[in-house]
Each structure stands twice: as structure tokens, then as C-alpha cells.
């Protein structure tokens, strides 16, 4: 079977295809992390400024600074109506009012960023003393966000897995294969294994390249901090470091990639047409995602079967069990499909 697997691999990935995959993934990763822009609702430069100031302070000094800054901003913003009426009634001169307005705008522009800093302070206060370090975490936060719905990984897996089954019919070699001793069930199982392994390898490549490019760009500073210190992960119950968290997430996602590949194999084995298989696979991936977006109360098992939740970004706890269960489900489904294709369905 190993030899047969080699030929099947050569059919699917022979020549320069692996190179193309790697190049596409590198370009995508470089493009993604070129300027790590996060979708947050506060000013990043101001946040960075605060964090760099706090990182140079001791814990007690930092705490004092945060509390005093909080009070200052609140009092400036809260005093607007009063200052306005004071100016209207002549209690305040134009110069004084202008000076206040300048302070007001400054405070207003800093308010949302400081709010994020304040939340970080509360996050860190729940950790042990040695972990209460203020560090710029938006890079790790964004890395987690970008690890979500990875369309490139899904797309590559789809494009390279579909031909594993559909090529035989498009090239009209299926007759020659089916009359051979090992040309039915054994060949089918070999293709399934190849599909699964390819999904795992493509996923591994995608996330490894992401890690590598991210590391080259930003380094892995503070990767040993607890994950709860990173914005958005404060409710995470896993006792794991930042690097450990993302590594575990990658493992989970690589398993999901394998599961996705199995799903695609099952569909292709039934449909046996390149374009129609791509359509059905894309529909099975896309529609549940839409249903989820429109109705968040929909049953999640629907999405775990279509493996989208596995490929969505998640700030919840590490979950290796669900992809394993889904992989097992899809293996069973594929075995049923194998039986169907070769016993019930004939030309």
C-alpha cells in the first residue's frame, strides 16, 4: 500500500505543486502580518504608549498610575457640560475654556485606549504577582484573530483534495483501475488515507508558516506569559502559556484540516466530478457559517460536523477532543461511502 500511496501522492502533488502551495502560504502569511492591524475600537498608538510607560514601572507604581489616570480622564470628560455652562454664563473666560477644551480632546482621544489598559490591569490582577507584567499583547491577540477562519488553508485543502478522487473520472482512467485486483476498495482506502494525510500536512504547513513569519516579524517575546495576560483571553481556563495556547490551537486546527479533507473525500467519492464537488464542498462549508452568523443560537453540532467551528478563531478553552470525534465520524462516513460506491453503485 505504501507504493500505491506514493503514486497517488505523485498524481496529486507531483511536480511543482508543493512549491506553489508553500509559496502561496508564505505570501499570504507575509501579507497578513505585514502590518499587523487589529480590528479594535481604540487607538493602537495610544495603547502602545500606555503599555510601554507601565512596563517600565513597578507593580505598585503602575497600579497607582492607572487609578489616577482613570480618575483624571473621568473627571475631565464628566466636566464637559459644567464647563460649557460656565463659559456660557461668563464664569469662565475664553482662554480658560479653550485650555479646557484642549485637555478635553486629549482625554477623549485617550479614553477608549485607556479603557483597554484598565481592563488589562483587571485581567492581570487575577494572576500571580510574577505574571503581572504589562506587555504589548496586541500582536499575540491579532495572531489569535488571524488564526481564525483561514480561507486559504480551507481553499488549498479543497483544491488539492478534490482531484484525488475526481481525477480518475475526469481522465477516464477509472475503468482501468476498477478492473484491477486492488483497484477498488484498496485504492479507495489509499486515496482516503492520502486525503487525510494531505489535509493534516497542508494544515501543518499553513500554521507552521504562519508561526514562522509571525516570529520573524515580531519575535516570540512574552510567549511564556500565561495566556490570560493577553487581551481577549482573560476567561480562558487553561493553565498554559501564550505559546502553548497557540501551539495547542494549531494542533486542534491541523486536526480539523484533516477532518475537512475527509469530508471532501467523502463528497468527491460520491459526486466524482471536479467542479460539482468543489461547489458542494464550498456550500457545505459556507452555508453553515452563514446560518451561524445569522442565528447564533443554532445548534453547534451542525457546525462541528461541517468543521467550521474548528476553523474559527476561538478564545475559549483548548479543544482537541471535538476534532478527534469529528474525524472519527468522518472516517465512519467515508467507510460507508466506500461500501456504497463499490457495492450498490455501478456504471
Amino acid at each position: 500500500m505504501t507504493r500505491l500511496m506514493y503514486y497517488e501522492w505523485y498524481k496529486a502533488f507531483g511536480g511543482f505543486k508543493w512549491l506553489i502551495i508553500v509559496v502561496i502560504l508564505i505570501i499570504k502569511a507575509v501579507f497578513t502580518y505585514q502590518s499587523l492591524d487589529v480590528s479594535v475600537d481604540f487607538s493602537i498608538p495610544i495603547y502602545r504608549e500606555y503599555i510601554s510607560e507601565l512596563s517600565e514601572m513597578s507593580q505598585s507604581k503602575a497600579e497607582k498610575f492607572i487609578l489616577s489616570e482613570n480618575e483624571r480622564i473621568n473627571s475631565v470628560l464628566g466636566g464637559y457640560t459644567e464647563m460649557e455652562s460656565a463659559y456660557s454664563s461668563g464664569k469662565l473666560s475664553l482662554e480658560e475654556y479653550k485650555a479646557y477644551i484642549k485637555i478635553y480632546h486629549d482625554a477623549k482621544s485617550k479614553a477608549s485606549a485607556f479603557n483597554a489598559v484598565y481592563q488589562k490591569h483587571e485581567q492581570l490582577s487575577m494572576l500571580s504577582n510574577e505574571n503581572r507584567i504589562y506587555f504589548y499583547d496586541l500582536e499575540w491577540y491579532t495572531f489569535g484573530e488571524y488564526m481564525g477562519l483561514d480561507f486559504f488553508a480551507i481553499f488549498l485543502i479543497m483544491i488539492f483534495t478534490v482531484p484525488i478522487f475526481c481525477r480518475e473520472h475526469s481522465l477516464n482512467t477509472h475503468h482501468l483501475n476498477m478492473v484491477c485486483k486492488n483497484g477498488r476498495t484498496k485504492l479507495h482506502i489509499t486515496k482516503l488515507m492520502l486525503g487525510f494525510i494531505s489535509g493534516l500536512v497542508l494544515g501543518l504547513l499553513a500554521y507552521s508558516i504562519d508561526f514562522a513569519i509571525f516570529g520573524l516579524r515580531y519575535g516570540f517575546e512574552y510567549s511564556d506569559m500565561p495566556i490570560q495576560a493577553v487581551m481577549g483571553y482573560s476567561h480562558n481556563a487553561d493553565n498554559v502559556s501564550v505559546l502553548g495556547m497557540f501551539a495547542a490551537m494549531s494542533v486542534s486546527k491541523v486536526l480539523w484540516c484533516g477532518c475537512l479533507a475527509l469530508m471532501i473525500c467523502g463528497i468527491c467519492a460520491l459526486l466524482r466530478n471536479n467542479i460539482i464537488s468543489v461547489i458542494m464542498c464550498a456550500a457545505l462549508l459556507f452555508f453553515p457559517m452563514q446560518v451561524l452568523k445569522l442565528n447564533e443560537n443554532s445548534p453547534s453540532w451542525l457546525y462541528s460536523i461541517s468543521i467550521l467551528s474548528g476553523l474559527s478563531g476561538s478564545k475559549e478553552n483548548i479543544d482537541i477532543l471535538t476534532p478527534l470525534i469529528n474525524t472519527a465520524i468522518w472516517i465512519v462516513i467515508n467507510l460507508l461511502v466506500t461500501a456504497t460506491v463499490y457495492t450498490k453503485r455501478r456504471e
Binding site: 487607538s43 498608538p45 495610544i46 504608549e49 480632546h105 486629549d106 482621544s109 485617550k110
Partner: peptide, 10 residues
């Protein structure tokens, strides 16, 4: 549009 203030500049 975002209004960023870096050390007082807008």
C-alpha cells in the same frame, strides 16, 4: 476615521 493622539498631537 480615527483620531489618534500621540503625546498631544492629533
Amino acid at each position: 476615521e480615527k483620531i489618534n493622539s500621540i503625546s498631544g498631537d492629533i
